[in-house]
């Protein structure tokens, strides 16, 4: 994917309430006015503070794209990896040091097009990590191409007459692949987003939070949906909270109702638990556990 220029500027005077979690020497960020990614970062930072996890033992891994830039702005051990490969990188990180709290933070194109295979396998294994997907229904960084999440009939530059390419229903994909925690909110629901991220981080196993977010520059403009604020109004008016909804029923159609809520919360043994228990049963004391 094509990377755009990063601007540098003076550190702003106004204190951000989550400043301690941000790399202020990298501000201003690259995101457009009205973009929802910054809002999700704010929610994430608050969720981290509330969850009381050891920040020195928390690593964030991103892929490539607009949301892929999140890792670079957070004052944590942070990795900006290759396109689609944040999850397998995070898998290596987690297995090599099980004491770490791992968060993968990336976009819908990165996680579900080029990286889709890794998502389903990490969910199947139940690798202990939280995947946060900022879903803006489009490729932002490269200029507004259709993603595997773009609703049918919505326009992108690669489907200029409207998309006929059926999209994924991300909560259903996560649920059926084995994720132990699945929630969806929009950036309008900042408190819910914060709470969901906190719960996901504290829930052992592969947890998934989808955050629907506006892309005013590309998705909204090409589809004549107004600006960021218009999208927020749309989320406010068209979101329906339905906790525990069957994930089969939460497809996103173009400019129709968005079902949000906590859909899945269950317990499964993690990959590492399964590995340790099984190899201990085979080898007994001979089994040499991997030291963190």
């Amino acid at each position: 994917m094509h990377e755009q220029q990063t601007a540098t500027a003076e550190v702003p005077e106004v204190k951000n309430p989550v400043e301690s979690l941000l790399r202020m020497d990298r501000m201003p960020h690259i995101w457009c006015p009205g973009c929802g990614i910054g809002t999700t970062v704010n929610c994430f930072a608050r969720a981290l503070e509330q969850s009381k996890v050891d920040l020195d033992k928390t690593a964030i891994v991103s892929g490539i794209g607009c949301t892929g830039r999140v890792a670079g702005y957070l004052n944590l051990d942070s990795f900006h990896t290759t396109h689609g490969r944040a999850i397998p990188f995070a898998t290596g990180l987690k297995l090599a040091n099980p004491d770490l709290k791992i968060v993968v933070y990336s976009g819908d194109g990165d996680l579900f097009a080029i990286g889709g295979n890794h998502f389903i396998h990490a969910a199947r294994r139940n690798v202990d990590m939280t995947v946060i997907c900022v879903n803006n229904l489009i490729y932002g960084m490269t200029g507004g191409q259709v993603a595997p999440t773009t609703p049918v009939t919505a326009k992108g530059t690669t489907y200029p007459y409207g998309s006929y390419d059926p999209p994924f229903n991300l909560p259903f994909l996560a649920d059926s692949s084995g994720a132990v925690y699945v929630a969806r909110w929009t950036v309008y629901h900042v408190h819910h987003v914060t709470k969901a991220i906190k719960e996901a981080i504290l829930h052992r196993g592969f947890s998934f939070v989808e955050i629907i977010s506006p892309c005013p520059t590309l998705y909204s403009r090409r589809n004549r949906l107004g600006d960021g604020l218009d999208q927020m109004k749309f989320y406010q008016e068209n979101s329906e909270i339905r906790h525990g909804a069957n994930t089969k029923d939460v497809d996103i159609d173009f400019q129709k109702k968005i079902i949000v809520g906590k859909f899945v919360e269950r317990e499964r043994k993690t990959y590492r638990q399964l590995m340790n228990e099984h190899l201990t049963s085979v080898f007994g004391e001979q089994y040499t556990k991997y030291e963190g």
Binding site: R85, P88, F89, T91, G92, L95, A96, H121
Partner: peptide, 22 residues
């Protein structure tokens, strides 16, 4: 720890995660 990954792309980046974990 050995892990059989879903493909070689995943394998070749998982090892790099493990390296940065030390």
């Amino acid at each position: 720890v050995f892990i059989q990954m879903e493909d070689e792309i995943a394998s070749s980046i998982a090892i790099q995660g493990a390296v940065w974990a030390g």
